[in-house]
């Protein structure tokens, strides 16, 4: 079984996928504090043992991202099983059956976004090109800002489930050494003037 953990956006998503890509179970719920990742994953997985851990590595919310990625890393290291990073925006893009711009919450009114075939970018709602409809999980406030800028978020019912999308992204994803798991922030750190 492959355990998939995504805490990088406004929703926390967990999935248990078998080796052939069939989604056994999945759970998506609004990201909350005081969440026991182990309890959630355990109740979702039942008696299943993971052979591989996949984690969404962002870009996304600083706090959430770290919670899922570090838990997944600890679990993989502890069980001596592979860890596979999954780019957050690729996961969202894979939920759409037509070309769409993937988005995720960046906080402070900003959004991470990625056009089909493009690279992740960071900007305000108004800066995102309107070529495609959007797919992704953002905070209600951000969703309102996107709609204000006349963006169209594809409704959940038209999209693949998180688990189905994860299975698609997993086909091309590769495991990395434990120490090479990188969080994607896309923020630059200007040298502080003294």
């Amino acid at each position: 079984m492959i355990f998939v953990i995504d805490t990088s956006s406004a929703m926390t998503a967990l999935a248990v996928i078998d080796e052939s890509g069939v989604v056994e179970r999945e759970e998506v719920f609004p990201t909350i504090r005081n969440l026991s990742m182990a309890d959630h994953l355990r109740s979702l997985a039942g008696a299943a043992m993971p052979a591989k851990i996949a984690v969404a590595t962002g870009p996304g919310s600083f706090t959430g991202l770290r919670v899922g990625v570090s838990f997944g890393l600890g679990l993989a290291m502890g069980l001596r099983i592979p860890i596979v990073p999954l780019p957050t925006l690729d996961l969202q893009a894979a939920r759409s059956d037509e070309p769409a711009t993937a988005v995720s919450e960046a906080g402070r009114g900003r959004v991470y976004y990625q056009l089909p075939g493009g690279e992740p970018a960071l900007g305000e709602a108004s800066e995102i090109p309107k070529t495609y409809r959007l797919v992704g999980w953002v905070a209600p406030k951000t969703e309102a800002a996107l709609e204000q800028s006349s963006h169209v978020l594809r409704p959940e019912r038209e999209l693949r489930t998180f688990g189905q999308a994860a299975a698609i992204v997993l086909e091309k994803a590769r495991e990395v050494p434990y120490g090479s798991l990188k969080l994607e922030y896309m923020q630059s750190f200007a040298s502080k003037s003294i």
Binding site: A38, L41, T63, V67, S70, F71, G74, M77
Partner: peptide, 13 residues
């Protein structure tokens, strides 16, 4: 968060 998260993962494993 990183230390606590890794600790939780190891504890579960």
């Amino acid at each position: 968060l990183v230390g606590v998260g890794v600790g939780e993962g190891l504890a579960a494993a």
